[in-house]
Design a protein around this nucleic acid. Sequence first.
RNA 1: UGAAUAGUAC
Length: 251
Amino acid sequence: VVTYNSAIAACASGGEWKKASQLIDEMRRKGLNPDRYSYTSAIHACGKARSPLEALRLLRAMETNNVVPDVIAMTACMDALAAGGKWSEAIKILDEMRSKGIAPNERTYKAAIQACGRGGQWQRALELLSRLENRASGATVQEYNCAMMACVTGGEPGRALDLLEQMKANKGGVNAGPDIVTYTSAIMACSSKGKWVRALSLLDEMRKAGPRTQPNVRSYTAAIAACGRAGKWEEAVALHSKLREEGLTPD
RNA sequence: UGAAUAGUAC
């Protein structure tokens, strides 16, 4: 079984979902019982291949064959649904977890938020976030970051910038302050709004905000894109040189 | 042996 599972995991890395589910069939034909690992890898393969419905099918097949899905399997399925823009299906899975008593973890919530964003449901993403904020432990930086991206991809980049402000205000509390991903996401938000000046000032703010938020290649890339989109090619070129001055290699 | 937020080319 483990041998098969390794093969299925390899299919997953390559996004070969057909091969993956074919291997599961083969296992059953040979009298081997696919386990959680087998199914989760196959589901992951569907996610990579952007075949959300196949992922759902596999999750159901798993149940049919009396392999009880756990957090990882369910989350992998939600990730696949998110990648395919199937936000309502993803939320159904989240509810299903509740009813089955499977505790969602941070990755699960991130998948749900991402699914909402990709489906253009930024309001729902924010709703989810506020539920997390109301938890005793509050929302984590990664959950905030994920919600910011959901606003950007969901067509409401202004909200992402609001979240940045909120995170800065929370800095002393239970929640850690904005990190490098937070800022880079905010720059992407500026980019979609055509606010290249703001993007540049955020880049500057990062440098001053401490060692944890020093701009990296991705931050620069986002800022360059913001300038590029606004037709500010001179600024874009200037950023490119600055990036190299700091010893970073453009990709 | 399985899942994860800022890079998948209007």
